[in-house]
């Protein structure tokens, strides 16, 4: 079974690349059939990705988030799933390219640095509380990533209109109002799940971690990300800040999340380290 997992691990970035390519054709060449093909390819890729995650869970006997690169793959799947749902609900495929190019790179990194825990590992990796905690955190981060990508699209379209460039971005992206709504809605959902993850994480500390400091770099970064996206929601709902500000904030939030995923997880924190 390990051979199949390793094969799927190589196949997944290729599939995401091809899916992104189809969405790019749909976006830039405005070919309707490419859009339908892209959606079918996305669904197929998601299905294969789910199979790969299940195989990993069964074969290595833990929820596959024990390492940073495993978590990357689950985040890629979560973002792709959330996007597929948004596309299904809105019927709009024009944002697919921008979301899936990100998914492709996350999966590429995950596959390139493929590793996992083998043999002895802490039993909490299979506990339901831990799985809920991790699932919530992943859904939270995935929603923040989507929020940031919609923010990026908002800034691109705003800039194009402001500069009187009426090319492909002007023609193909949805309205600024719609992009801003998606930007804030995704931040809202992310906020809910990350809050849940933090609460469940606090519940886990007694059972799981020998030493947990509230000043752990990972924890601090998580609070910062949470705070930034809370500002996005506050800016829209209460302060009525311009959409541009919310878009910039969510991009700042994404930078923090990436920093947390890469630098903090790999080099700075012994918290969330299960080896």
């Amino acid at each position: 079974m390990e051979g199949i997992i390793k094969l799927l691990n190589v196949v997944l970035p290729v599939l995401y690349f091809y899916t992104t390519y189809l969405y790019a054709i749909f976006f830039f060449r405005e070919q309707q059939p490419a859009g339908q093909k892209a959606t079918r390819m996305l669904h197929t890729t998601i299905a294969i990705h789910i199979v790969e995650i299940i195989l990993r869970g069964v074969y290595y006997r833990h929820f596959p988030v024990a390492t940073v690169w495993e978590a990357f793959s689950v985040i890629a799947l979560a973002v792709a799933l959330i996007y597929a749902y948004v596309e299904y609900r809105s019927g709009n495929k024009t944002t697919g390219y921008y979301i899936l190019i990100f998914v492709f790179f996350i999966q590429l990194f995950s596959s390139a640095f493929f590793d996992t825990l083998k043999g002895e590992f802490p039993p909490f990796l299979t506990s339901s509380l831990f799985i809920f905690h991790v699932s919530s955190a992943i859904l939270g981060y995935s929603s923040f990533i989507i929020s940031a990508i919609y923010g990026l699209m908002y800034l691109m379209l705003f800039h194009e209109i402001k500069q009187s460039h009426f090319g492909i971005i002007y023609r193909r992206l949805p309205s600024l109002e719609e992009l801003s709504e998606m930007n804030v809605r995704a931040a809202n959902i992310g906020l809910f799940f990350l809050t849940l993850a933090i609460i469940l994480g606090l519940g886990l500390t007694g059972q799981v971690y020998v030493s947990f400091s509230p000043f752990d770099a990972k924890a601090i970064i998580t609070y910062i990300a949470w705070f930034i996206y809370a500002l996005v929601v506050y800016g829209k709902v209460k302060a009525r800040w311009p959409g541009r500000v919310m878009a910039l904030l969510s991009l700042g939030g994404l930078a923090v999340i990436l920093f947390s995923m890469l630098v903090v997880n790999l080099f700075m924190s012994n918290f969330h380290e299960f080896k």
Binding site: L157, I161, Y170, R171, P174, S175, L176, E177, E178, E181
Partner: peptide
């Protein structure tokens, strides 16, 4: 795509506001 100035103005409006 709009092909008159008046309809281009409305198209632009729809690029900013959805509803």
């Amino acid at each position: 795509g709009a092909i008159s100035v008046a309809s281009a103005a409305v198209e632009l409006t729809q690029k900013i506001f959805r509803d």
